[in-house]
């Protein structure tokens, strides 16, 4: 058994115990991480809208993506064209133009949003869609990653992730190209929940 061999080798070779340091929260003193979140998210290539006084979510989606044929969302308020619960295979989602999901938490220092599989309907949805929209409550924005991990139970669902912008690459001569293998754009709607 390689396991016992590896464990035995570690026990033989490891150094004397070193204590685990405690992790401070690195609070910034900045009471309102909201503005910082918007700035870093935009710098990372996301579009951010505050839609508190908007004419309604579906109208905004149609205005932003007039060409979109297939819209998918597990949210009942979104006018979906695809029923995520009824698809035969996840590969059927290849035709999704716009996906709308709820985000749980925003992080000001990097513009990332925590999303779980429960928010996605299908795990692959935020990646396979051409364009992604995340709804986020501004009250759920924290300063930094330490705070974020204090708030999220990472194993509450089988899959969860931080999304910090549209899919991108710079693998050809360091030229930044938006839209590598995942969604070509990320739009964040900041809307206070009722």
């Amino acid at each position: 058994m390689s396991k016992s061999k590896i464990i035995a080798a570690i026990q033989k070779n490891k150094p004397a115990e070193v204590l685990l340091p405690s992790i401070p929260s690195f609070e910034t003193g900045n009471a309102k991480p909201f503005d910082a979140f918007v700035a870093t998210a935009e710098a990372g290539g996301s579009q951010v809208f505050r839609i508190s006084d908007s004419p309604g979510l579906n109208t905004v989606i149609n205005t932003l993506f007039p060409e979109a044929v297939n819209i998918a969302s597990p949210l009942p308020t979104v006018r979906s064209t695809i029923d995520l619960e009824k698809i035969q295979s996840t590969t059927d989602l290849e035709s999704v133009d716009v996906a709308v999901i709820k985000g749980q938490l925003g992080v000001a220092e990097n513009g990332a949003v925590w999303v779980t599989e429960a928010d996605c309907g299908q795990r692959v949805l935020p990646f396979i869609t051409q364009h992604l929209i995340i709804l986020l409550d501004p009250a759920d924005i924290v300063h930094n990653m330490q705070e974020a991990y204090q708030r999220i139970p990472v194993d509450a669902t089988g899959f969860g992730l931080f999304i910090a912008g549209p899919s991108k690459t710079a693998d050809i001569e360091q030229s930044l190209v938006i839209g590598a293998q995942g969604a070509r754009s990320l739009t964040i709607f900041l809307e206070a929940s009722q």
């Binding site: 870093t40 990372g44 992080v107 220092e109 990097n110 513009g111 990332a112 990646f127 930094n144 990653m145 330490q146 990472v154 194993d155 669902t157 089988g158 899959f159 969860g160 992730l161 931080f162 999304i163 910090a164 912008g165 549209p166 899919s167 991108k168 710079a170 995942g182």
Partner: peptide, 21 residues
Amino acid sequence: RLLARSATGQPITIYTSHYHR
């Protein structure tokens, strides 16, 4: 906080995926 800043100067990678099940 350290990884992507050190790697490419981004504040975080676009996707940080946590697979549990």
